[in-house]
């Protein structure tokens, strides 16, 4: 399939719909989850089980006035929310949902996701600076140092997987793990990963990095509301705030997709029996990413926030050395077996 302007536009349109729906209903899931862990019902007023709450929130955000505080750097202030949302949308173009459902397979798909994530990280910095607000500024400095710190172990662990499957193409990485849950990269004791029993630890590293990269609790130092009002989006109202919010949830979905493709076999069925629900199809992919997102929510409402030093030390002193060691070990083992 060639990438013409038309099917690029269609792909981006579908990505926008998917991201919008996910952002809206993941907020609902998050609030319901928070309610569950705190022994209260969560949103209940609008529609059955509060299911109409997300569209009503959307209308509220869209009809509110977009305030631009005096003294902000106007151009930068307006660019930041777009910069938060746009890369997250484009990343979906490269993600394979199943063998056939992928907007545009790119042979360096893994790198593309990291490239757009890097642009997204810049939006936090720009938002904090453009707001001309002490708290927003401190928050953006925190958020960016966190993003830079956790990008490194995430990239190194991804390189480990690239070595294992011999490709930077996300579809090929997922396809190399087809044929049952024992073929997934998370299990160390198989020939494809060179009998590297540290594979589960790699999975843990990339999972922790995904939580940290998406600025979620217990690593949401950038949005620590007890210290920094609301973090880098303190000064944003209406859809400016809405775009940050949607970008954040889009990033969560991308993080879950990446973990699923790299370690959990993408769309592969855990027990390939050959008849319908157990063949390899998009349903398994969606099931896996929503289970990971559920764990994200679970973690958020279970653990208290860390400190900024604890957060940076975890990455620089533990995750990076372990992931580097694991990369060398995997390369050596692949050479041996």
């Amino acid at each position: 399939m060639s990438l013409t302007l038309l099917n690029a536009a269609v792909a981006v349109f579908i990505a926008i719909c998917f991201v919008g729906l996910n952002a809206a209903y993941l907020v609902w899931c998050e609030r319901k989850g928070a309610g569950f862990y705190q022994r209260r019902p969560g949103p209940m007023e609008n529609g059955p089980w509060g299911l109409l709450q997300p569209p009503i929130d959307g209308v509220k955000l869209m009809t509110k006035q977009l305030l631009i505080p005096g003294g902000v750097d106007k151009a930068i202030f307006m660019v930041a929310p777009v910069l938060a949302m746009f890369p997250a949308l484009i990343s979906f173009v490269t993600i394979p949902f199943s063998k056939n459902i992928v907007a545009h397979p790119i042979n360096v798909g893994v790198l593309m996701i990291f490239a757009f994530a890097a642009l997204g990280g810049m939006s936090l910095l720009v938002a904090g600076w453009g707001s001309r607000n002490k708290y927003a500024m401190i928050s953006s400095v925190r958020a960016v140092s966190q993003t830079v710190a956790y990008e490194i172990p995430m990239l190194i662990t991804t390189i480990t997987i690239v070595l294992v499957s011999g490709s930077l193409n996300l579809s090929e990485i997922a396809a190399s793990q087809l044929g049952g849950f024992w073929k997934w990269n998370i299990w160390g004791f198989q020939e494809a990963v060179g009998y590297n029993i540290l594979m589960p630890i790699s999975f843990l590293i990339i999972f922790v990095c995904a939580v940290a990269e998406t600025n979620r609790a217990p690593f949401d130092l950038g949005e620590a509301e007890s210290e920094l009002v609301a973090g880098f989006h303190t000064e944003y109202s209406s859809m400016g705030f809405g775009l940050f919010f949607m970008g954040e949830y889009a990033n969560i979905v991308i993080g879950a997709c990446l973990v699923t493709i790299l370690f959990l076999g993408g769309w592969s069925s855990p027990v390939p029996l050959g008849f319908f629900p157990f063949t390899d199809h998009v349903g398994w992919f969606l099931l896996k990413i929503y289970m990971i997102i559920f764990v994200f929510i679970w973690i958020r409402w279970t653990f208290p926030r860390t400190t900024i030093y604890g957060l940076l030390n975890l990455s620089w002193k533990y995750l990076i050395p372990i992931s580097l060691f694991n990369l060398l070990l995997t390369a050596a083992l692949l050479k041996v077996f």
Binding site: V108, M112, M122, W129
Partner: peptide, 25 residues
């Protein structure tokens, strides 16, 4: 040149520019 595109974004637009903006801030 998709590889160079990705690397340009990761290295220059992402990492290096973040550091430069940091210093300016």
């Amino acid at each position: 040149a998709k590889l160079i595109f990705a690397i340009q974004l990761i290295v220059y637009a992402g990492a290096i520019m973040s550091l430069i903006l940091f210093i300016i801030m």
